[in-house]
Amino acid sequence: MNIFRLAGDMTHLASVLVLLLKIHTIKSCAGVSLKTQELYAIVFATRYLDIFTSFYSIYNTLMKLIFLGSSFSIVWYMRYHKTVRRTYDREQDTFRHWFLVLPCLLLALLIHEKFTFLEVLWTFSLYLEAVAILPQLVLLQRTRNIDNLTGQYVFLLGGYRGFYILNWIYRYLTEPHFVHWITWIAGLVQTLLYADFFYYYFQSWKNNKKLQLPA
């Protein structure tokens, strides 16, 4: 564990908690993409299957349980909670997320390190995580006016990705043989997807204005 990795995990945790807290306290999920949240639930469910097969640390297991629990709670709130579900922007959140799942699954079947059930699903989760934010970014573009919490959620997620890249650079430099092309490329693609959003986020921050994305 290095400082970049810890900072990455903490911003990731903060992003999910910000979102869950927002939904729980103000009983609204306006501006939040259910498609993205469902994709994250799939990402965590397929990546963390190794909870049952291997143990790394208490930290590792605890964080996995938190991410699983929070992502499925958010999906539950948005789908079934009687007040929250009414605030969901159903008409705007039209991204066909299954068109992301299938190519990722095919890619994982083709490009992986080992052809085992757990390894292919783990690789699939990396590919899917890279693109899972897309429905959320599309929804942000459509609604344009973004409340602070949704903006912070995406900002924190982007921060998490940035720190993970630093973590990989650090590990590459300090740990012998730390080379993971699949993880790195998927992670880099994911980080790049945030670049556009970050540009407008900082613009609005600099000008002290409410965040607005161009249509």
Binding site: H12, S54, Y56, N60, K64, N167, R171, V179, T183
Partner: peptide, 10 residues
């Protein structure tokens, strides 16, 4: 190298 050192990441 077959040790899964990225599997301890989240």
């Amino acid at each position: 190298k077959l040790v899964d050192d990225t599997k301890d990441e989240l």
